[in-house]
Nucleic acid binder design. Structure first.
Lengths: 330, 330
DNA sequence: ATGAAAGCGCTAACAG
DNA sequence: CTGTTAGCGCTTTCAT
């Protein structure tokens, strides 16, 4: 019994008589044999490890990031890969280190900015990568993200169809826009485009993720634009506070104020009332990202930008716009 | 110039004339040379990778888990190690896989239960591990965690010193107790011990992490025990809702109700009013965990249970108990 | 269908 | 202080 035979049984890379295969598998079981990962990687030039870069930047909602991460890890395991965790403070040098040392076979990069400094580097590195998020120049890159432009459009269309003609986008914290984070910008652009197309009034404002910020932002918004009857929220952590603030301001949801969120379905369903929303399919995106990488590793994949279609679910937080004269002053 | 010389320059494992050292370093720079991680691992029997096991269980507060994770990654990098991310659904088999294949050198295990099924396995595995959290039987293990027993005691003592004699512990979601998660149990035990020692009335209740749950739980609590003037909260996501609920119930903080939290300092300071709290030093714990592992890898470390002392900071959410007759009914 | 043998790119004895 | 050399435990040609 040669070592190579065992190797071939384990990898299935050449045909083996069922008799020897059984003998080998039995022995593997009995001895609890596990191939040494380093030796395997050295010989095969494949570590079977993916790097996952999670930048913990200000204003990002951590639970959503973890949903992505979990999905990436779970899917990677399905394809017999492990995941190395890189935080972004290592930035470019971290990517160079893990790829040039062949610690990993491929890279998953999250939270991409419009002009991300890591993008030029990714083009040069000798290994495949997938971005979760879409930079300005996607040339030669593989990217995937929700179609946030369409997501915002669908929110605007849904509200406009219900008769609302003055609505606002309550966006991410301003730091996220300042960094030119792709998803926030694309949502903003979609909101503006749809508002213009439908010929209604649209106001946009960032919002920090504290109760007081929500109180102030919404207070000022409704004071400056008292006719607003619809809100689109792209900011998970403020959803709870926002509902409180609207209650406190005497605006019933949805009778006085229709509310749409761009967030995970379970978050939308957990609120009272349940929120009409465009879902943020973190699990699906993470899975797709890994599958694209695996395809590339096997030589089959090709660079492409994948926009996951936006899917709107109407729930209890939106309804027809109130007649203007029906609203009484507080 | 022999290959080994380069190796020794890079590792510093034997003295090198400054002249050759400089020449080597120059060449390394010029060529952008990076040692191949697999080859190095195979030859040295060290992968320089730590596994981090993050179980994403129900009721756990994700941002806190990420603080631990970030601290672990950052510290690991300081000691020239990388971090492999394992989610817990792989459970025992994941630990076996990465350790027996020598993918990693050591393990960091988070969110440990009192009778954690992974603990017996950790004792057997041929590599060092550190638990963040403390199981029932710590024999032969290295564990680290905040001294939650003392944390709860300090909260009770602080409130009792202020004249409160009827207080409640608003705990984690019930799933966390049901799993027998160590930190929740130790806090509960500390609360009960201190209440008894001080001869005051203490009520304990779990609390789910939704607005409605907080409203109901606190409403019922104060209805059943109207004399309660102090609250200890161990449940980060409900802190915001809790302040709202108390406002809504007409209980001013701290005049009518003193509030103590066991949470990260930045969370306590972000509230209005700022919360008196015992800090949960996630960064310190993550760092200590990695340093303990590194020490073990270098042969120096020894098994031990480390309880990080509880540190209480009095802020604006606690004050002397109101005179019983001063409280008016709503 | 199996075996033999040559590396993969390093590190760590072992010499000098 | 530096060079030589023997592996580390696999995978993968190349033989048979």
């Amino acid at each position: 019994m040669a070592a190579s035979t065992v190797s071939y049984v384990l990898s299935g890379k050449r045909s083996i008589s069922s008799e020897t295969r059984d003998r080998v598998q039995e022995a593997v079981q009995a001895l609890g044999y596990r191939p040494n990962a380093s030796a395997r990687a050295l010989a095969s030039n494949r570590s079977n490890v993916l790097a996952l870069v999670i930048p913990l930047r200000a204003g990002m909602h951590v639970p959503v990031l973890m949903q992505f991460a979990t999905s990436v890890v779970t899917t990677a395991r399905r394809y017999d890969h492990d995941v190395l965790l890189l935080t972004a403070d290592e930035g470019r040098s971290g990517l160079e280190r893990v790829s040039q040392s062949a610690l990993v076979d491929a890279l998953v990069v999250m939270d991409v900015e419009l002009h991300d400094e890591r993008v030029p580097l990714l083009r040069e590195l000798p290994m495949p990568s997938v971005l979760i998020g879409i930079p300005a120049d996607t040339d030669g890159l593989t990217c995937i993200d929700l179609d946030f432009f369409a997501a915002a459009e669908q929110c605007v269309d849904h509200l406009t169809d219900l008769g609302h003609h003055s609505i606002a986008l309550l966006g991410t914290p301003s730091a996220v826009y300042a960094r030119q984070t792709g998803f926030a910008h694309r949502t903003l652009a979609g909101f503006q485009a749809a508002v213009e197309r439908r010929g209604i009034v649209g106001i946009e404002t960032p919002c920090e993720a504290t109760f007081d910020a929500v109180l102030n932002t919404v207070g000022e918004l409704l004071e400056a634009h008292p006719g607003i009857t619809g809100l689109v929220v792209q900011n998970e952590p403020i959803i709870g506070p926002l509902l409180d603030v609207l209650r406190k301001l005497g605006r019933r949801v949805p009778e006085d104020m229709s509310l749409m969120a761009i967030c995970a379905d379970d978050v939308a369903e957990r609120q009272v009332p349940q929120l009409s929303s465009v879902t943020l399919p973190a699990e699906e995106i993470g899975q797709h990202a890994v599958e694209a990488l695996i395809a590339k590793l096997e030589g089959g994949g090709t660079s492409a930008v994948t926009l996951v279609p936006a899917r709107l679910t109407a729930r209890a937080s939106t309804c027809a716009a109130p007649e203007p004269q029906e609203r009484t002053t507080a």
